[in-house]
Amino acid sequence: MPDIAYWLIGVGLAFDLFGCIGLVRLPDVYNRAQAATKCVTLGTCVMLAGVAVAAFGESGGAIWPMGIKAIICAVFILLTSPVAAHAICRGAYLSGVPLWPGSVEDAFGPRAQDIRNEQAAAQTQRAEHEETQAS
């Protein structure tokens, strides 16, 4: 295992640790989500890169499939983790979790109000539809 693989895995672990400290220390759910998601995604991807380097650098090259799988997994995490965090934050805002009082800007506020109105309209329409079907 080459030295650079140890360094990559160590840097990834450091990022993971900082992300989890942010998850515990920051004040509201949006801050926690951004700190934890960015740090842990980068940290795990760097660790997977270290695994790939270790697999390709092994003498004889007997475990190269491990490197390919590590790269596939890194690309997948890099694509999906921000999507998941965005979905959670959107759900959190729409379910009414308040912002931290020290927040300076609420850019999603008007759009969230529109979405809530659309949902309420759809619900009343569905209720009317069920009523007409019942009668």
Binding site: L13, C20, T37, I77, A92
Partner: peptide
């Protein structure tokens, strides 16, 4: 949502 974020992060840590 706090718990959901933490569960998501725990899943990524298990990959580690």
């Amino acid at each position: 949502p706090d718990r959901t974020v933490a569960i998501d992060i725990l899943g990524t840590l298990i990959v580690g």
